[in-house]
Amino acid sequence: MGAYFKEIFTGFWSLLVGMSITIREMTKPVVTEQYPYEASVMTSRFRGHIELVPNEEGGNKCIVCGMCMRSCPSACITVEGEKREGIKGKALTRYRLDFTRCSLCGMCVESCRPGAIRFSKDYNLAGTKKAAYIFDLLKRLEEQNK
């Protein structure tokens, strides 16, 4: 009989404690971020899709060695280059990234010896067509330079 009443009282007390916690939390300021109005700042190491690093003249540093292509687990990078006069190695003509297959692992960035690619800070990408996520990074770089 004693245990019966004890359980009622401890149980009821636990409910009151719970309610006091939620009402205390209610008076605290909100912690959510109102996304479209305030966007979060990505950390410096944030891994977005890759982009080409511009050199001093606004060109790229790529030597078309193809390491990124080979290191990619999902085969989403295609690099094409051609031999040009006055340039050591090859010049980049096309850098195609199929972002639909990318898993943002960063193997390409790590494997790149000249440091020609880096992670972008784009995170709020949205689109309705698959084609919108097949990027030509060289074009992207040229557009950024404009």
Binding site: R45, F46, L104
Partner: peptide, 15 residues
């Protein structure tokens, strides 16, 4: 997640 993101660059699939 914020802490891990600042180190790894990712919030869930860290690699």
């Amino acid at each position: 997640l914020n802490l891990l993101e600042s180190v790894t660059g990712s919030r869930l699939t860290y690699c």
